[in-house]
Each structure stands twice: as structure tokens, then as C-alpha cells.
């Protein structure tokens, strides 16, 4: 899966599942910008774990990502590690 596909899948889920408007989905957007609360974060982790078949919970550390661009990179890194 290349970066483009990851970005597309993440954005599609954020729009469909979390009802975040498309114009807010820019790489520099923080979770506060997207108005995401703690319930959303828990759901997001599970959604992305299922979408990409990766283990986010045991790999996440505070500061792993701070904005949407960081989330794309983090997911890409986990996918690459899994495929090694």
C-alpha cells in the first residue's frame, strides 16, 4: 500500500465515520482542529487497526503524532514494519 492509498483511506474513514468535513483534512490539522474528543480517538484507533490490520495501541507513545500528517506517517511506518 503506498502513501497515497493510506491518505485516501484515512480521509475516507474520517469523513464517513467521524463526519469531519473534507476541507478540514489537511496534513497540518491537529485533532483539536478536527474537533475530535476522547470517544472519537478510541473509535479511530479501532477503525484504523481494522482498516490497515495493524496494532496501534501497543505501538503508540505520547508524541507519536500530533497532527493528521503525523498520523499518515505513523500508519505507514506500522504497515511497513508488519510487512518486513
Amino acid at each position: 500500500m503506498n502513501k497515497e492509498e493510506i491518505i485516501q483511506k484515512v480521509n475516507a474513514a474520517l469523513m464517513k465515520e467521524f463526519e469531519i468535513p473534507e476541507e478540514k483534512l489537511v496534513p497540518t490539522a491537529t485533532f483539536a482542529d478536527m474537533q475530535v474528543d476522547s470517544l472519537d480517538v478510541v473509535d479511530m484507533v479501532i477503525t484504523f487497526e481494522q482498516t490497515f490490520k495493524i496494532d496501534i495501541r501497543n505501538n503508540y507513545k505520547p508524541g507519536s503524532f500530533t497532527n493528521l500528517g503525523g498520523l499518515y506517517d505513523f500508519i505507514e511506518k506500522l504497515i511497513n514494519e508488519k510487512n518486513k
Partner: peptide
């Protein structure tokens, strides 16, 4: 941590 899901992959 609020995420206390017991689901494993």
C-alpha cells in the same frame, strides 16, 4: 488510558 478495549487482532 480510556482505551481499555479487550479486543485483540
Amino acid at each position: 488510558d480510556i482505551n481499555v478495549s479487550v479486543a485483540t487482532p
